[in-house]
């Protein structure tokens, strides 16, 4: 990104804020880790970590909670990027938790693993005794997140208590915790979807190919454009069509919708994002529509 010292651009201001937060965590916590899924927000997080710590190594490992419901392009990109950076990547999988009996899959059509990954995440935190976990959540994504702090305190059970959050003033973050507690850290809280795309463009960040226009078999269900795969089969009465689509988020492949779009580079995506009238989550997350407070409920249970 441009380094000229004139009036600070908004991306520069956001970047500096995020770098400051990452360094603060690295300095004050004993065992941080950074959640890296291969998705665009976590790719931006890795670039920010490079800016914060190079020429040194990252003072924390990367970790992915693998739902087993990933898009193959994204998992491949995850491994490629971690190797390219020469940083350690830990993978813990929901499949393993299911096999070991920690998690029981809910029967029926809604087998999203957003909620199911919570025990796997909490187990991994305990296994490595991580006391601070970086996540790429943004406040523009959802109403509960709009009220979550940058340092989101979690008790021994990983739970978030929205009514008992630590006040956060200036850039003075309180990272003090007792044993067994941890803090989820959201360095890109103040970034919007548009900021992320602008950053991807100006930093020329590589991202998984499915973020750009490609042809894919889809069905239209409840107004959402759903990609059809083994994980998300078409229902008997649905008509499968091939359309040119791209993904705005690349989460759980059983519940992540795509959007019809010809955008094949970040600048075209920015153009579309700037005029879009539907939020990233609204367009693409099947599970958030279930209840108005579904994100708040998941967070209370330990979700990011």
């Amino acid at each position: 990104m441009s380094t000229s010292a004139e009036s600070q651009s908004h991306l520069q201001a956001l970047e500096d804020e995020s770098i400051f937060i990452m360094r603060e965590v690295a300095a004050e916590f004993e065992r941080p880790c950074l959640l890296f899924s291969g998705g665009k927000d976590s790719i931006v997080m890795l670039r920010l970590a490079e800016k914060a710590f190079r020429p040194g190594k990252f003072p924390f490992p990367l970790m992915h909670i693998d739902t087993g419901h990933n898009f193959p392009e994204v998992v491949a990109f995850r491994d490629y990027r971690a190797a390219q950076l020469g940083e350690r990547l830990i993978v813990r999988s929901v499949e393993d938790s299911i096999r070991s009996g920690r998690i029981v899959e809910r029967p029926g059509q809604d087998n999203s693993r957003n909620r199911m990954q919570i025990p796997t995440l909490l187990d991994a935190l305990a296994e490595f005794r991580f006391d601070a976990v970086f996540g790429g959540a943004r406040r523009d994504e959802e109403k509960a997140r709009a009220k979550e702090r940058i340092y989101s305190f979690r008790d021994r059970h990983g739970q978030w208590d929205p009514k008992n959050q630590r006040p956060e003033l200036w850039n003075l973050y309180n990272g003090r915790i007792h044993n067994g507690e941890n803090i989820r850290i959201f360095p890109i809280s103040n970034w919007t979807e548009l900021d992320i795309w602008q950053y991807i463009a100006t930093e020329q960040l590589e991202i998984p190919s499915i973020y750009y226009a490609h042809k894919r078999p889809i069905v239209i269900r409840n107004g959402l454009v759903l990609p059809i795969s083994d994980l998300l089969p078409a229902l008997p009465d649905e008509i499968v069509e091939e359309r040119t689509v791209r993904f705005r988020t690349v989460g759980d492949a059983t519940c992540t919708a795509c959007v019809e779009s010809p955008a094949s580079d970040p600048w075209q995506v920015i153009e579309e994002t700037a005029v879009t009238r539907i939020t990233e989550r609204g367009a693409t997350r099947v599970d958030d529509k279930v209840s108005e407070a579904s994100m708040e409920d998941r967070k209370r249970a330990g979700y990011f």
């Binding site: 009220k147 929205p162 009514k163």
Partner: peptide, 28 residues
């Protein structure tokens, strides 16, 4: 559009700091 937490919606009040974002061509 702005009251995010369940307790706020239930009580029709704002109880915490919420952050909102918008941009025009001139500023974020």
């Amino acid at each position: 559009l702005t009251d995010g937490l369940r307790a706020e919606r239930e009580q029709g009040i704002t109880i915490d700091v919420a952050y909102r974002y918008f941009a025009t061509p001139k500023r974020k």
